[in-house]
């Protein structure tokens, strides 16, 4: 799936495809490692939703939406709330200890395999190693999964 960098979720990883930016900005970004094929991760979102910190080549770079929306990335991970029925690996859980703990109780942990059995309306139904659970859309937004 190719999306603008600005659309990635916290913690999500992708591979840069293309920079649709004016030459000077592109040149500057090239010097920082923004070239196609490079792995990039959204690490952090600022208090007011913008700018965001991206990790590329081991360093953290801040970009605003006005730039990150013109950088296209290929990503195989999606927020769980967008996942259609099928098998996935949990790659990131954005949330505090409490949230993680609650998810652990229903078998949802980073690195574990889960199956989406239903994604309609406000609820997403999950089968994690035999444990059935249902998450709200908001909760599912904070869980990033990778396709098998």
């Amino acid at each position: 799936m190719v999306v603008p960098l600005s659309r990635m979720c916290e913690g999500e990883m992708g591979k840069i495809r293309k920079l649709e930016l004016p030459p000077l900005t592109r040149e500057r970004l090239c010097g920082l490692g923004f070239v196609s094929g490079e792995e990039i991760q959204l690490v952090k979102v600022a208090p007011f939703g913008d700018p965001k910190v991206f990790r590329i080549k081991g360093t953290d770079i801040t970009l605003r939406e006005d730039i990150s929306m013109w950088i296209l990335v290929e990503t195989s991970s999606v927020p769980l709330s967008y996942a259609t029925n099928g098998e996935y690996f949990v790659s990131i859980i954005n949330g505090g200890m409490g949230f993680r703990e609650r998810l652990r109780m229903v078998g949802i942990e980073v690195g574990k395999k889960i199956t989406v059995t239903g994604n309609i309306g406000k609820r997403i139904e999950i089968n994690a190693n035999g444990i059935l659970s249902a998450l709200s859309r908001g909760q599912a937004m904070r869980i990033i999964v990778r396709e098998r």
């Binding site: 500057r28 700018p51 770079i61």
Partner: peptide, 9 residues
């Protein structure tokens, strides 16, 4: 006119 922010942490 808006500015940009490309900054390394």
């Amino acid at each position: 006119e808006p500015s940009t922010l490309i900054m390394e942490l």
